[in-house]
Design a protein around this nucleic acid. Structure first.
Lengths: 195, 195
DNA sequence: GTCTATAGCGAGATAGAC
DNA sequence: GTCTATCTCGCTATAGAC
């Protein structure tokens, strides 16, 4: 049946993306061969080319999907009553979202240099939108007198770097729960912007 | 003359390291071939093997030298009169030192996964010493009542991530001088730790 | 939709001439 | 100290059988 065949093909497609995501994150795009990905999925290398025109497009699709997920999830956040609540919501959202997708986050940052120029620009454009959202939120808060910060744009860069950094050290089952980590980082974020 | 030959060899050695550093930072260790490095230096590929036993050792040596430089420079900082002054000194030092060596910084972080386990452990050990220095400084400040922070270890991770992040966006000749960037980041650091 | 087989290429590393 | 030449391997991508 057509439905069965499509379902099976979609499963293979998904498994290829999962394997590529994990392997690229662990060893790096350039260090991973199409053969390794195929072996991980349990198909032959040639089979991958039914699902992607080439290795570069596979990488780009993974990064692009991740950035769209991020912006969609950001847009889906409920409205906050005031700038301080909005910043707290952003802080906790950023930590949770990035923690849950550490492989994709790692790739979206580390493999930028392996993208062809046109693909690079498309990903960078999406990243700038995310940064601009936070910068706008900080600017609003400052205008409203809720925050005191020397430079909203730099503060946005600084806070995003700080929050994303959780991924480099946080391990499930460690000293602190993720909820506790959120609390601690929110405390530092709040103080840093003078809220 | 022996002196002339040695001097020439040392020059070649240096140029190989510089080329490798730049190329690894720009394209990634796995994506750069020994032939590319040789071509950049202006020698043949085989010549590189007079200076390094293999590509992996070349990478490790670059990362190791960078980490030793960092710890040496940290140790060479003058004593500060109090915890707040020590933290300000650290903040400005970190930004300046990392900014001046962006290629080495990038490699020391991004290429960890391309190190063989034993080499990885040696680099990680050096990195932990650097983090421990800041964590110790924060703990002292808190004990002395100069800082208010929920968790010195997490604060150290958070601040280092935030400060290193300057390298991802700062460009010479941009809107802000590096001195001004230091001021702005120090303002955020100071507030974040409640100093 | 997946397989086997392979074309075509470039990699890391080494040998030996100069 | 650097070169040319080469060994051996694994890569991306494609062709065609089933």
């Amino acid at each position: 049946m057509a439905r069965k065949k499509n379902a099976s093909a979609e499963t293979t497609r998904l498994r290829i993306r999962e394997a590529a995501l994990r392997l690229f994150a662990r060893h790096g795009y350039a260090a991973v061969s199409m053969r390794q990905i195929a072996s991980d999925v349990g198909v032959q290398a040639g089979t991958l080319y039914l699902y992607t025109p080439d290795k570069q497009t596979l990488l780009f699709d993974l990064m692009h999907a991740h950035m769209l997920d991020l912006l969609d999830a950001l847009a889906a956040l409920p409205d906050a009553p005031d700038p301080r609540a909005a910043l707290e919501q952003f802080t906790r959202f950023h930590i949770r979202f990035h923690r849950a997708r550490s492989d994709a986050v790692f790739i979206a940052y580390m493999e930028l240099r392996n993208l062809e120029p046109e693909n690079f620009e498309r990903i960078e454009d999406l990243r700038r939108r995310y940064e601009a959202h936070l910068a706008g939120l900080l600017t609003q808060g400052q205008t409203a007198g809720a925050f005191t910060l020397p430079d909203p744009k730099l503060a946005a860069f600084a806070l995003i770097a700080m929050l994303t950094g959780v991924n480099t050290w946080y391990r499930e089952g460690g000293r602190l729960s993720l909820a506790r980590v959120e609390d601690i980082y929110w405390d530092m974020v709040r103080k840093a912007v003078g809220a």
